[in-house]
């Protein structure tokens, strides 16, 4: 995604060069080569940081290592090819219950936290957008949870959810939040929503700010109440920004690791996610199964992201592509003028 969007402006620029040079076709071929040259560092970096880990994980998932001992009690060295056995073990072997439980948890956390964060984040954005006095203070304070590192916020919540913590003091009843059960899931959801709703709020706020005020004015003149204004003006117009925020949250939620790990603990079935499973296997030197878990999680994320973009039409790259097309046409007329819209992803704080 990133590669194509960053290359576009370059190609547009190089294409304009041959005008003053010789034949059009030859110039195009030359430009193609120049483009390849200029892009090769990018490709090299991408291959190194994206392609290599992916391929390496796929490869590892087909091997097993260090599982056997020789007669003197030493570990037999070297990798053995086991084909798809690691995957088979995960989905229907001894580890199946643990995997499906983690899969269920991951999906459950993704659905519940993202739904709540969207509603609360939207509300936050509206408040931030409208708060007239102390607007800066409101915005800054809403963003504080997002600025706290996840592991730190998890630790913070763990103290609050401790047996003698403030939450139990408030509800006046001792709940052991970090033990197995639905309360553990609830604790994770609360902490996650607290931390990431501001992220949705921030992106939605950016979307709100580009809605022209005269639309509301016109609506008021036509006698639309504020509820109607929200549903018919605000929501449709903020939808592109909101969907991007939700997509990012979904991807984030699917690879949730640090929050349940620190807040509830390792190996707690009630809050175990797929990334935690992969980590657990890797830290016990079972690299094959760990890579298999990671690969499955990767495909799961891809499928969910794909479905989301297809079904809900999240305009993550579409809009940028549209703008680029416009930009390119402009380039055709005037070579120097090629300010293709910056790709959307870059605007978003990671």
């Amino acid at each position: 995604m990133t590669s194509t969007s960053t290359t576009e402006p370059l190609r547009a620029k190089t294409r304009s060069v041959p005008r003053h040079a010789r034949g059009r076709r030859r110039g195009r071929a030359e430009a193609g080569r120049l483009a390849a040259l200029l892009l090769s560092p990018t490709f090299a970096v991408l291959a190194l940081v994206i392609v290599y880990p992916l391929v390496s994980a796929l490869r590892d998932s087909l091997f097993s290592s260090g599982e056997q001992l020789d007669e003197n009690g030493f570990v037999v060295q070297g990798d053995q090819f086991v084909g798809l056995r690691n995957f088979a073990d995960i989905v229907r072997g001894a580890a199946a219950t643990r995997f499906w439980n983690a899969f269920g948890n991951t999906t459950f956390f993704m659905l519940t936290t993202v739904a709540m964060e969207t509603v609360i984040g939207m509300a936050m954005a509206l408040v931030m957008h409208h708060a007239l006095r102390g607007r800066g203070v409101v915005r800054a304070s809403v963003l504080v949870p997002w600025a706290v590192p996840t592991a730190v916020s998890a630790l913070l919540w763990r103290w609050m959810f401790a047996s003698d913590g403030v939450i139990n003091a408030i509800i006046g009843h001792q709940v052991l939040w970090t033990t197995e059960g639905w309360h553990a899931k609830l604790a994770v959801i609360v902490a996650d929503v607290w931390k990431t709703a501001p992220f949705v709020g921030l992106l939605t706020l950016a979307g709100l700010q580009i809605i022209p005020g005269d639309l509301y004015e016109a609506a008021r003149v036509d006698g639309a109440g504020s509820w109607r204004q929200f549903w018919q003006i605000t929501l449709p117009l903020v939808k592109p920004a909101l969907l991007v925020a939700v997509l990012f949250r979904i991807l984030d939620a699917l690879r949730m690791f640090d929050l349940p790990f620190v807040l509830i603990g390792n190996q707690k079935r009630s809050a175990e996610t797929l990334s935690m499973l992969a980590w657990d296997e890797a830290s016990n030197l079972h690299y094959g199964p760990a890579a298999a878990y990671a690969t499955l999680l990767f495909f799961y994320v891809v499928v969910v992201a794909f479905l989301f973009v297809k079904l809900l039409g999240a305009d993550v790259i579409g809009e940028a592509r549209g703008r680029r097309a416009v930009g390119r046409r402009a380039v055709g007329r005037r070579a120097e003028d090629a300010p293709a819209a910056p790709p959307r992803e870059e605007v978003v704080p990671a």
């Binding site: 040259l37 490709f43 090299a44 291959a47 390496s56 290592s65 060295q77 990798d79």
Partner: peptide
């Protein structure tokens, strides 16, 4: 440059395989 890129990717894949021995 392209070749180097490809080689990098390939050798990287091969590298992890040789562990142990």
């Amino acid at each position: 440059a392209v070749a180097v890129t490809a080689a990098l990717a390939l050798s990287a894949c091969g590298g992890s395989g040789g562990g142990g021995g």
